[in-house]
Each structure stands twice: as C-alpha cells, then as structure tokens.
C-alpha cells in the first residue's frame, strides 16, 4: 500500500534520512521505533508531504506522492496524528473534529464519521463544546487521533501517541488504536519511543537509527532480538 524507496531528506545542509526504505501493506499495523532524533518524525512528515525528500521514491497505492503538497496527500487517504498532538487549542473539540473532515463536502458522510469517532472516544462527545486547549494530555491525544480519522483515511500515521500521557490513558489509547485497525480496517503506521507497547501492538516493525533503517522484522522476532532488547526494551 505504502512504499518508501531510498528516501533522503535534508534540513538545510543536514541530512536527516539516509536511504530509508520501508513498506506497509493494506490492513497491517507497522511500527517504526528508534531513539530521540533518529528520524522517525521526519519519516512521517515526509510521507504526509510536510517535508519533501531530496532523493528517493514514495508511492501510495501505486501513485507517486513524493513532492506532492500535504493538503493533496490527505485527500488520497493518508492522515497523520502529529507529534505533540498539535490540536487547535482555540477551536472547540467539535470544531477540531470538523476540521478533520475539511475536504469532505458531503454533510451526511461528515456526520457518519463524527458518530464513529465519538463512539470510539466517548469523552470527545462529552467535551464537544469545550476549547481543545482545555483538554488533558490524554484527551488531546484522542482528539488528535479522532481528528485524523475524520479525514476518512486508508492509512493512519501516528506519531508518538504515548508521549507525555498518564500510563492508564496510554493503555486505553492503544486499545482504541487496535480497534481502529480491526473494526474500521484502517492501516496504521505507528511511530513510538515506547518500544514495549509498540511491539506488542504491531505485526511488523522497523528500527531507525540516525536516519537509517537498521533492522526490519516481525514484531515477535524483534522482541527477542538481543540488540533491540538491549537498546529499546532494557
């Protein structure tokens, strides 16, 4: 479904990604783990078009998307819940969700999606008219995921959904992520620093170090891999 081939990304003169290649198949949950500054977020930003690669190829469902503006890529069915959640703090929770459906002109479809998201995260319905900024960290993360789902994605990119959130809520959020994959059939690419929880949820995983993919395997194998155990599960 999504294929990255030898992608190089630069910030100015600094190279952030060195020939990154990875693939995500329809219906999978794939995780990308690595330490701080390894290039995980850059990878996601490049897929969703916020960053353009200097070399390499990105295809989504057979269509080249590298160099395409972010707002077009959303329309093709790739949604991202960005690092740090980045919800619109001055907009209400409901308005945040409506922003997700910005490209959908059909009002009945928007309503349908809204119902689905609010069924998934009932708290968002309870707080519908509150400004997004007043939510707790965990609720904001739900909102960020819900907002991404409102775009009606086929592929959902999640950037560090556990970052800065109370452990109890992390469990809840990851349960919902699994449900999204199972019940809605949405493919998921999950970036996490918390390798424990990511490798338990995903089927396959990639390990990113200083901008390079150094390992790639099924998650149970990665969990047993001594290098991974030492560096990320220790």
């Amino acid at each position: 479904m999504l294929i990255l081939e030898d992608v190089d990304v630069y910030y100015g003169n600094v190279q952030a990604l060195h020939g990154v290649s990875l693939r995500v198949e329809e219906g999978e949950i794939v995780t990308l783990i690595g330490s701080n500054g390894a290039g995980k977020t850059t990878t996601l930003r490049t897929i969703s078009g916020l960053q353009s690669p200097r070399a390499g190829k990105i295809t989504f469902c057979g269509q080249r998307i590298d160099g395409m503006p972010a707002e077009k890529i959303v329309g093709l069915g790739i949604a991202q819940s960005p690092e740090g959640r980045r919800i619109f703090t001055n907009l209400t929770v409901r308005e945040n969700l409506q922003m997700g459906a910005y490209l959908e002109r059909d009002k009945s479809k928007v309503r349908e999606r809204l119902e689905r998201v609010e069924a998934l995260f009932p708290r968002l319905q309870e707080r519908a008219s509150q400004p997004g900024g007043t939510l707790s960290g965990g609720e904001q993360q739900m909102l960020a995921i819900g907002r991404a789902l409102m775009t009606g994605p086929r592929l959902l990119l999640l950037d560090e959904p556990s970052l800065g959130i109370a452990p109890i809520l992390v469990q809840e959020i990851f349960r919902e992520i699994e449900r999204i994959n199972r019940e809605l059939g949405t493919t998921i690419l999950l970036v996490e620093q918390n390798a424990h929880i990511a490798l338990r949820l995903a089927q396959r995983g990639y390990v990113l170090e200083t901008g390079r993919i150094v390992l790639e395997d099924a998650c149970p194998a990665l969990q047993k891999n001594p290098q991974v155990r030492e560096a990320y599960l220790g």
Binding site: S48, G49, L50, P69, A70, E71, V74, G75, A79, Q80, P82, R86, I87, F88, T89, N90, L91, E95, Q98, M99, G100, Y102, L103, R147, A148, T151
Partner: peptide, 24 residues
C-alpha cells in the same frame, strides 16, 4: 463557516492545518 474555521486553524498551526487538507 468552513472557511472561517480553516482561517482559525491556519492561524494557530499551519502544518497541522495542512494535514487536514487545507490549502494554506
């Protein structure tokens, strides 16, 4: 309006707004 919401979203966070499909 939809446009007004988009304006407010862009003014808060342009990158996040692009991820919603908004043409800045």
């Amino acid at each position: 309006t939809r446009m007004g919401r988009a304006m407010r979203a862009v003014s808060e966070d342009a990158d996040a707004a692009r991820l919603m499909g908004i043409n800045i």
